[in-house]
Design a protein around this nucleic acid. Sequence first.
DNA 1: TAAGCAATTGTTACCGGTAACAGTGCGGTA
DNA 2: TACCGCACTGTTACCGGTAACAATTGCTTA
Lengths: 331, 331
Amino acid sequence: MKKKRPTLQTIADQVGATKMTVSRCLRDPETVSEGLRERILSVAEQVGYIPNRAPDLLSRATSHSIGVLVPSLTNQVFADVIVGIEKRTEPAGYHLMLSHYGYSPAVEERSLASVLSYNVDGVILSDHHHTPRTLRMLETAGIPVVEIMDTHHKPLQQAVGYDNVAAAFDMVSEMIRHGRQQIIYLAVRLDERTLQREQGYRQAMEQHGLTPVTLHSSQRSSYSVGAALLEQILNDYPHTDGIFCTNDDVAVGAYFECQRRGINVPGQMAIAGFHGHDVGQAMTPKLASVITPRQAIGEAAAQALLARIQGEAVADHTVDLGYRIETGATL
Amino acid sequence: MKKKRPTLQTIADQVGATKMTVSRCLRDPETVSEGLRERILSVAEQVGYIPNRAPDLLSRATSHSIGVLVPSLTNQVFADVIVGIEKRTEPAGYHLMLSHYGYSPAVEERSLASVLSYNVDGVILSDHHHTPRTLRMLETAGIPVVEIMDTHHKPLQQAVGYDNVAAAFDMVSEMIRHGRQQIIYLAVRLDERTLQREQGYRQAMEQHGLTPVTLHSSQRSSYSVGAALLEQILNDYPHTDGIFCTNDDVAVGAYFECQRRGINVPGQMAIAGFHGHDVGQAMTPKLASVITPRQAIGEAAAQALLARIQGEAVADHTVDLGYRIETGATL
DNA sequence: TAAGCAATTGTTACCGGTAACAGTGCGGTA
DNA sequence: TACCGCACTGTTACCGGTAACAATTGCTTA
């Protein structure tokens, strides 16, 4: 009924050779006599032969693919990281198996199992908190692992990122230097990075004898959450003169709300975000933000992973790519 | 040296059974006697057995994975589509093999070959223009294909999306209804959808006896491109009273530039975007935009693909999920 | 002229699950 | 007692490419 997808044997039958010869011809044409080579290549073209990685995957347990687990694909931060990863893997002939786990370690575990079942040659992880089973799977899989985004923990094998605690500390210190006293931290979704930034925020505040206050929203980050949190601040903490937001979405949302209410930024209210996304950097006033090297992180992580897949010894266990404080015009 | 990842045989050896029995036990524990079952499951747990899809992939040429080709991962439109796709595939136990091709048919061809080499069970494509080799590969692969985003072309097998021409026509008509006469279309990167929207724009303009003008930027879409194009308009077409942007990034960027220059929106300049992204909908004034059902498209596409993978006959060849005109406060 | 060698092609086995089929052992029934 | 059937477990073969080795051919060289 439905005709099968052509294999090497299909081609071999048509040219009167064995699949071994065809295999050789497609991989290294020089090793096959000219006449045969031409016939093989033309038949291959004609039947529309598509390479098949399955046997490779089975016999050598190598897939030429790497697994990438990110908490969210709609989060622009990770979209940028992925672009960076691909920039390195694509030229090397490696394919990405992407999975996202919605910030949940349990889902991460499932995603990892799924990715490993395809015999990926290496894995890039985006969080540092893993379930015991996740750790066990990584161990038995025996493949290189690189963790990204955070350099504050001891990595499983290797980490590439920046220091969230230090970045938050620096940004809040900068706000204080600009004369702000009542700075509130706006947190959404309690993932690791949000908590680390809070830690940096607290350190900076306490160092200057100021009282840290954190406002949470359990919702996922969005402009409207930023607006809602700002409203809450105006009601509950009317003396606030600055907000440090866990990301730019919240910061921009809060800024929009200030605009609507005629609150002068930065005159009455300083606003700082995190990651330096396009919106914040394109609007006027330009948003103060911590500029993180997302794409560079992806590139460095992929490069390190590929090196280890290819058996190179790797010296540095943690690569810190730093960050930059953009003071913009909202401090 | 490096110990191998455990297989069914590893477990079988330890409990004194054959791998066949272990295989059965893991898939359907009821079919194995209680004592053996307990031992197998405990050993499997202890050695950290990870399922291996490679043999399946080889012997049944099925991978329980589907290929998804999108032009860009950083484009929020496709991020949303992917979320929709996964909403359906994840519960069905299918894994996504994502690839992006940067709006280039040649890269799409390479990406497709790569994805097909992993024996994906179906493919979701995001564009309608394919290279001849791409078409051939799809044919010889013999797997279900669903094309998304556009319903204006005849699909290879099946399409899910909305009508870009009609959407653009409706939005521009709405702008004209609001009294705009000198409306310019702002296009970036000449992909299919940009061109289709231009077509709808032209139709609306011509129907009202107005002269269509398109401004291109070859750069990839961004806020700053929107700002730059607005500047160009002010210089070259000073009587312009409205702009229809091929997406919200450009529209918001243009809005920011208006703000900077003290141009009243919509008083002096009406602005409309496309896709209804968060920024535009969160800011004040709310951006006029065509709200497209991205996530629903992903879901419907995945559902249709899975149905066909599972051998169901599919009646409708094109599913149009429509769009909504949000007039916002910038017309 | 026979050994020797390079160039080319063929043969076999393997990777790890599982379908299909083949035992094996036990209890129940005629 | 003999036969049947059920519950459980084992055996074999297969998927498609390729490493490792074997075989064949034709030509050169001592």
